[in-house]
Each structure stands twice: as structure tokens, then as C-alpha cells.
């Protein structure tokens, strides 16, 4: 039988020191880890659980509740296209197509170069400037196929 306390490996202790040791730090910690590492690993979850002295299952339960927190490795840029009503009416379909074509992947997938992850999201409050999408922390709106190509190109070049 093998017993491994994975917590012995420290991966996010640098982040944890910035937070108060109390339960209501959990979501801010998760958001920060997710922001810096792009996703939350089992080791990170165990480390957070140890830090807050709560079961790992509870940490994972919280992670799984919020759509912006991920337990899977994502690309450097997560593209989230809004699929709710106003964006849908304003031509989400066209944007959908061009994103798939430009990135060469389907929704829910990550490009093989690890640069982009493509996802849907629910209403992002850009209904007056639809269709719209988020790329990491930034919002892009009044999208046209041309504009999407430009955005993706710029992000590629930045690397």
C-alpha cells in the first residue's frame, strides 16, 4: 500500500501567504490560483485544504461550482463566447464559426500549442454591444468575423 501526502510538495505556498487563514478566504484564493496558474491542480487543492483546515472534497466542491475555476489545464488565453439571448440574436453563430475555424478547435477544447482554450459562457452583460466575448480578463464586443481574426492574430503575435 502506498500512502502519499501530496501536500508535502508545495506549489502555491507563495500565493497562500497573502491570505488570512479563514474560510471566507477560499474563493479569493481559488480565483488567484486560477488566475496565476490557469487552473487548479489536485496538489493546489490539497494545499489550500491544509491551509484552511478543511477537507479537500470541500475545496473541490467549491471549485466545481464556479464556471471560471478550472481543474483542467487551459490554454494561455481562455476565449469565452457569450451564448445568451442578446448575443445569440446579434449573430453569435457567425462568431462561433470563425472562432472554430481560426483556432482549429471545437468549443471545450484547447489548441495543441497550448495558447487558446475555447468555451461558451452565459450572459456577460454586454448585451448592448453584442456579440461579445471575454479573453481572460478582457472583454471584446460588437464582434464581427474580421474583428475576431484581428484579436486572435494579435494575441498570437504577442507570444
Amino acid at each position: 500500500m502506498v500512502n502519499i501526502d501530496i501536500c508535502k510538495q508545495k506549489e502555491i505556498s507563495g500565493i497562500l501567504v497573502r491570505f488570512e487563514k479563514r474560510r471566507d478566504s477560499l474563493l479569493p484564493i481559488l480565483i488567484e490560483v486560477n488566475r496565476i496558474h490557469g487552473f487548479i491542480t489536485p496538489i493546489a487543492m490539497a494545499e489550500i485544504a491544509e491551509f484552511l483546515e478543511i477537507p479537500v472534497a470541500e475545496v473541490h466542491g467549491v471549485v466545481s461550482f464556479y464556471h471560471f475555476l478550472s481543474t483542467k489545464k487551459r490554454g494561455k488565453y481562455t476565449v469565452r463566447l457569450c451564448k445568451t439571448i442578446s448575443c445569440e440574436m446579434a449573430g453569435k453563430e457567425k462568431i462561433e464559426k470563425i472562432l472554430k475555424k481560426e483556432l482549429g478547435i471545437n468549443f471545450g477544447e484547447t489548441t495543441s500549442d497550448g495558447l487558446f482554450t475555447l468555451e461558451y459562457t452565459n450572459c456577460i452583460g454586454m448585451c448592448d454591444k453584442s456579440p461579445a466575448m471575454l479573453v481572460n480578463d478582457n472583454v471584446y464586443f460588437n464582434l464581427t468575423p474580421e474583428k475576431v481574426i484581428k484579436v486572435i492574430d494579435e494575441l498570437r503575435k504577442r507570444d
Partner: peptide, 25 residues
Amino acid sequence: VRLGAGAYVCGEEFALIESMNGYRG
């Protein structure tokens, strides 16, 4: 400022509080 992480239901006041308390919303 405390950030949410993509959950519509957290607009409900008790879900919002649960979320801020560090639980599922």
C-alpha cells in the same frame, strides 16, 4: 472588492453570502 467566478445564482443574496463565506453559492 470580492470577485465572483461565473455563477449567476450568486446574485441571489444568500447565495452571494454563501459564496463570500467560502462555500458553494
